[in-house]
Amino acid sequence: MTSPRALDIAGLQQELARVGYIADASLAAALLLMRDLARPLLLEGDAGVGKTEVAKALAEINRTRLIRLQCYEGLDAHSAMYEWNYQRQLLAIKLLEHDERSGAKDLAQREQDIFSERYLLKRPLLEAISGERPPVLLIDEIDRADAAFEAYLLELLSDFQITIPELGTVRATSRPLVVITSNGTRELSDALRRRCLYQYIDYPDYEKELAIVRKKAPEAEAKLAQQIVAFVQAVRRMELQKKPGVAETLDWTAALLRLEISTIDIDGAERIMDTLSALIKTRDDRVAFPREVVARLAAAS
């Protein structure tokens, strides 16, 4: 017995796969719920598990724009929303000054002109709510921004309006699908967590990662893809400072293909060593991969 919802979930998974994203059923279920309840989706997980990709795929299957706000330390709410185009405003003022005929009467009119939408530069948050079609708004690595910004964002996400002192309140003409990612470097506020649907994304298991490699790097032969994934999965089980993410797996696959390495085995260990920089990104971790270890992993793959 399959419920209609289960069919929806399977359908969404297929659609995501079509645009190149392999999603768990639980993620697909969350995406559907996000649409039903009009809530943002908070994605957590280690760097490199494909959190950002979710938003990209979501935009693609909805055939809508992806608006991305990359958070960073010191990002203030203002620069994430809008800015006045000062240069143009100044130019307008200077032009008006030389315009002798305009009397003092329409001073107010002139001022209004200068603070009109013509001189407004939209930044991601304003852009996301003022389009005609609802876009996907990706707020990337929110843990990098500070708590004040988070509070501001929360307000935007509940009211969907932005107040510009000189211009008034801009109401959302469309409600974006909001995807928020966090790498967990800072504890997010409970209020934000409560607003959002939640999804923890883990490193993919063997089957899923194989599907991803087959999808993204179809030129790798089935046998090689299996070996690559087995190798990477074994590497992740090791004690490393920085475990390779899915992007690293794909980079490494590309590197192997480029060097025309068609199989991973003990004899090729030397050549594999040369490509490891695509997979292992810190010096300490690199030390953990002498030739013997690589050979052993290669033999087991």
């Binding site: 697909a28 559907l32 996000m34 957590e44 409970d190 649907l197 939640y198 923890y200």
Partner: peptide, 15 residues
């Protein structure tokens, strides 16, 4: 399972 996935997304807020 559908109920599980949906409630999980709704009611979990952290890892």
């Amino acid at each position: 399972d559908v109920l599980r996935w949906s409630l999980k997304a709704l009611l979990c807020h952290r890892g």
